[in-house]
Amino acid sequence: MGRTQLEDAVPTTFGKEFHAYYRVLMRDHKRIEAASASLLEVPLGGTAIGTSICATQEYCDAVVPELRRLSGMPLTQAEDLSDAVQNTDCYVALSSAYKNLATDLIKITNDLRLLGSGPQAGLHELELPKVQAGSSIMPGKVNPVIPEVCAQAAFQVVGNDAAIALASSSGQLELNAFEPVMFDDLFEDASLLRGALLTLKKNCLDHLKVNEQRCAEMAAHSAGLATALSPTIGYRAAAKIAQEAVATGESIEVLLKEKINIPDSKIKELLNPQNLLQPANSSVKLETATMLKR
């Protein structure tokens, strides 16, 4: 059952849910690639403040091509050496891309923890792998430690981004003296995020299971199903059905049979999971006035 603001919304599938995770992670990957590309532009030859004092023209022309040859990296010389020596926006951009990935990772791991909560008094739509005992006081308790450790790694990346922003903005005039802390935090970001993603996949996602029975029960008894009825029986009638479902605990299907004059075959069509995951079929619309018993 899909949820908005933690309240029942409309049905969805875990395929759609995880594909959304995939899409946002792919965008994060592209942002990191784009930001990393700017690091390949170097100010070698600019010497102290980008004016190339004490450097020969031969050196300025040869140093970056030689470094490119030795490193095997597609390095280029900065177009404006004074700009490249004093400004560190390229590091801020990479940090921001890492922070984007971190915030998305926090969101995903929070979703996993919530969907795996329980096993009896929570959602328990997902079964997270049992990695270790969760409590020395509560027998049998198992905590979602893998999503938790990944989230904590992401927290650190978000904190590092703040430090990098401060360091970049604190450079004065022709040189920024605070690049060391930026480099240290960026290397830590890369290490933390790589480790978090690998452990999330290996120790959680690869062994994740969907509790199909629980999902079916929650969807069948959710008042959110009434949303799919609005195009057919009208918003007011659908709202009345939803309110009664919440008040009585009865399923939408049973209430439809009791309150609305719709054939069983039409009810099955309206509540068919496939029909709930795509645009409404106008051919199943009926006149509200003829269906209401009261």
Rank of each mutant, 00 (worst) to 15 (best):
A226V: 05
Y91D: 02
A219C: 09
L81D: 01
E58P: 01
I32P: 08
D89R: 12
P129Y: 02
E33R: 12
K209H: 11
C204R: 01
M73G: 02
D185T: 10
E66Q: 14
Q274C: 02
M138L: 10
H19D: 11
Y91V: 13
N100E: 04
R31F: 05
K99C: 12
P147Y: 05
L128K: 07
H207F: 11
E66A: 15
S170H: 10
N261V: 07
L166P: 00
E125W: 07
S117N: 09
L198D: 10
G72Y: 06
L94C: 08
E17K: 13
N87R: 02
E7I: 10
D184Y: 10
V64C: 08
D80W: 03
N110H: 11
M138C: 06
L101H: 06
M73L: 15
Q120E: 05
L115G: 08
V284W: 13
E7N: 13
A35T: 12
A37N: 07
K141F: 00
E127P: 01
P144F: 04
A48Y: 04
T109S: 06
R31S: 01
D8I: 09
N110Q: 15
E179H: 00
N211P: 11
A37E: 09
G224F: 00
L166N: 15
A93T: 10
S117Y: 06
A239K: 05
R236Y: 00
L256R: 02
L186N: 02
Q243M: 09
S230P: 03
E7C: 03
A245L: 02
C90A: 12
S222N: 02
D111W: 09
E179L: 14
A162V: 15
E250F: 01
A190N: 06
K285S: 02
A237P: 03
P129N: 05
Q213K: 14
E269L: 11
A223N: 10
K201A: 13
T227I: 09
